[in-house]
Amino acid sequence: MTRNEPLNVLLIEDSEDDALLVIRTLKSGGLRLHWQRVQSAESLRTLLREHAWDVIIADYHLPGFDAPAALEMVQQSELDIPFIVVSGAIGEEFAVEMMKAGAHDYLMKDNLVRLSEAVQREVREAHNRKERRDAEVIINQQLAAIEAVIDGIAIVQEGAYLYVNQGYLTLFGYVDPVELVGQPWTNLYSTQENQRFEGEIFPQMKQIGSWFGEATATRKDGSTFAQEISLTLTDYGSMVAVCRDITESKKAEQYLKQLKDYRLNPSR
């Protein structure tokens, strides 16, 4: 919702006069509104299903229907809609119970001075929660894609593994991420290779933000293999490593070289 868009307000209220009082209060607070009033559980259920609402403002007592029942219905719908109780006869005990049940705020009808502020605050918080959920979905999708990649992918923070995908575990002969996460990434390379990283590769990478080449890595069982490795620095100070085993391609390359040499010098 942008700043210029009107708020979609759903009122659970049996009194038309009280509903108009709430609307006038919100408009006097500078809010633009689209609003609708309901008085029954069935009407609420229908409107929750058919329309998108930015906030629900509910009277505590309605004939045959009340705010606790309405709140439970909203929660069962799994919609993250701010729920504010406005009542003329709610005691402190009932107000506390409503807040414990999940209501976002409550006000008395004879003191609605902070209603507009409360609505804007809760709508803003709901928007922030949605952004966090959307971000989590994107992150989870990205992680799922990374896990599906055959290449080994690792994230290194301050010299230790922060994340490794299944491909990385398989490449180095490990089973569980806990075997590597938190451990120095230098453990998987020989002293000679680490000296090469420190003296040659890292300085190049820091200049342009990335490096691509070959290295000799060490598996969990101590065996070594040739790998193609890409290193990239992130804006957050971490390093992303993408690796693949090129042992077979190196063997094929060596075989072709030997074959070429033989054809050029068959007497050797």
Rank of each mutant, 00 (worst) to 15 (best):
Y163Q: 08
A226G: 09
P184W: 12
V178Y: 13
K206E: 12
D245C: 11
F197M: 03
Q258N: 11
V178K: 14
Q207H: 06
I208S: 12
K257R: 15
A217F: 05
G237Y: 04
Y174D: 00
G173S: 01
I208M: 11
W185E: 13
R132M: 14
Y168D: 01
I139Y: 10
K251F: 09
A215F: 10
T234A: 05
P184F: 08
A252V: 10
A144P: 07
A144F: 09
I155R: 06
G222F: 10
D221M: 08
T170M: 01
T186N: 07
E214Q: 15
I246G: 13
W185D: 10
G213P: 06
G209H: 10
A145D: 11
V178D: 14
V156D: 05
V240M: 09
M239T: 14
A160H: 15
M205I: 02
W185V: 13
N165E: 01
T234V: 06
D235Y: 09
V175H: 06
T234H: 04
Y255R: 13
S238Y: 09
G237R: 05
G237A: 07
V156I: 15
L256A: 08
L162Q: 15
Y255H: 12
C243L: 12
I153R: 02
V178C: 08
Y236P: 03
N165G: 01
W211S: 09
Q192V: 09
I138C: 02
Y174F: 11
M239D: 04
T232R: 13
V164Q: 03
A217P: 03
T186I: 07
E248S: 08
F225M: 01
S249F: 10
P203A: 02
I138M: 07
T234W: 04
D134S: 07
D134W: 04
F202N: 04
